[in-house]
């Protein structure tokens, strides 16, 4: 699987996702600095990692979303290349319009850093095919702004079109309809607040995140 990880100033999960991709697929991703204007050719996956790009200035992900490399990510997404944005990556993908809605401050105002119980809401996406329908999984969250917000029409459309990939099975951050992760209209862009790359080997306390990457790999192979 040929993949790329976008690196912004302030990204801090770029190496975690790189390790996860290498462990699962056997090949290391290209690390692409935000000033680049092109991505490597023939990618099977673009990953936008978690962290605190630009110190969360203005709004989380807002500055990163206007980086030169993001135009290339848009172009790749338009060609159908799978794109995954995790945590700050999810915030960046909403800020740049690849995914609808916005991520606001957690309703409890606390930074939430712990394991979160999730439900796989739709297994018919290229990101979730490694899971069973309605499967309960545990993946860590670590964020201050994960409260998913969209207007009622958008939420209805996301649910109606099966675009909610993951839901929280417990209160975490006040997200509308317990949304933890969504996919784009074309199905090839996923944004999620929980960190699957932090649950890929037994030493992490579980492997519930690993199957996301294994499912992607199986789709490519």
């Amino acid at each position: 699987m040929k993949s790329a990880v976008i690196v912004f100033p302030g990204s801090n999960c770029d190496r975690d996702i790189a390790v996860a991709l290498r462990e699962v697929s056997g090949s290391a991703p290209a690390m692409v600095w935000h000033r680049e204007t092109e991505l490597p050719a023939d990618l099977d996956l673009v990953a936008v990692p978690g962290g605190f790009s630009y110190g969360d200035y203005l709004r989380c992900g807002a500055i990163a979303a206007r980086s030169p490399v993001v135009a290339a990510v848009h172009a790749a997404a338009a060609r159908g290349v799978p794109v995954i944005g995790i945590c700050n990556g999810f915030q960046i993908l909403t800020e740049t319009g690849l995914l609808p809605g916005a991520l606001m401050r957690n309703t409890g105002l606390d930074f939430v850093c712990r394991d979160a119980a999730l439900t796989v809401a739709n297994t018919d996406t290229r990101f979730t095919r490694g899971y069973a329908a309605d499967e309960a999984i545990t993946i860590p969250v670590a964020h201050h702004d994960g409260n998913y917000v969209a207007d009622a029409d958008t939420l209805d459309r996301l649910e109606g079109e099966g675009r909610v990939a993951f839901r929280y099975a417990e209160p975490v951050n006040g997200s509308a309809r317990d949304i933890a992760g969504i996919v784009s209209e074309g199905g090839n862009v996923l944004g999620m607040m929980p960190h699957p790359e932090r649950r890929i080997e037994a030493a992490h306390g579980g492997t519930d995140g690993r199957r996301l990457f294994e499912g992607l790999l199986a789709a490519v192979a």
Partner: peptide, 9 residues
């Protein structure tokens, strides 16, 4: 529109 405000919210 492009930067200072996120017009979604």
């Amino acid at each position: 529109r492009q930067l200072l405000a996120n017009t979604v919210i």
